[in-house]
Design a protein around this nucleic acid. Structure first.
Lengths: 125, 125
DNA sequence: TCCTTATTGATAATAATTATCAATAATATT
DNA sequence: AATATTATTGATAATTATTATCAATAAGGA
């Protein structure tokens, strides 16, 4: 008996998968609270960390210093608007070529690449 | 009289430019302390934030949640070792093609792309 | 059903960052 | 050069984010 499937973990994971907003822990906690008000903040912290370790959830790199999470682990990039600071998904931008190029330039074992584009979103321009 | 050039800001900027280690604020503070023990921690926080705003210093994207800073603003990427968690520079990996591709796929005004590669460094493999 | 113990919720502790404020010092003005 | 103005500083308090603690609960094997 190593890990257990708890109701809380399932609710947290489901919520993250439904959302397309890349919430912070606190934003996620508030939404989870509406579904089950008994779930504590520490439980959200713990389970999100576990889900990231298990590879079921991605931590999104941002410049604002606050961690954002994404329930969609499929290969895609992100865009952050420099004006409204919202995060968007960018599918259809492949990092394969980039990784290939990096492998030619270094002797490190490169496994993956995370890309964050920035600029101005449609609503802000 | 809008901004002033202070000794502290100059020391902090110089230190960041000399270092190739992408320090955190606290690591930077300790090094700055050795040069001038009168410089306070809050001053390091304040000036690094300003330098980032001014575009003289880059905030490096990492997965560890702690902000790292780079005095080298030339166009280059970073690599983080999944074993020792150290950050390395990757010059000679261009993001131009990537940005071009992203511009084709979206209507956002894409200005820049930050790339973080991960894998295993030479010493850890 | 019972037992073991991973997980939880609540809260305390810690760490990271920001705000406050009198003192200092950069620089524009005289 | 002297003075005045005020951005910046250092010290510290306040805030925020995250992690640790611990008794109570509940998942899941026996």
């Amino acid at each position: 008996m190593n890990t257990r499937n708890t109701r809380q973990k399932e609710v947290i994971f489901q919520t993250l998968c439904e959302l397309r907003t890349h919430p912070t822990i606190l934003e996620l906690y508030e939404i989870v609270q509406k579904k089950d008000s008994s779930i504590g903040q520490a439980t959200v912290y713990r389970n999100v960390s576990k889900l990231v370790e298990e590879g079921k959830v991605r931590k999104v790199l941002t410049k604002d210093g606050i961690d954002h999470y994404d329930g969609d682990c499929s290969n895609h990039s992100h865009f952050i608007c420099n004006v409204c600071h919202r995060l968007f998904d960018l599918y259809d931008v492949s990092t394969i070529d980039l990784i290939q190029e990096a492998r030619k330039e270094t002797t490190f074992d490169i496994e993956n690449a995370c890309v964050l584009f920035d600029g101005v979103c449609n609503q802000c321009k």
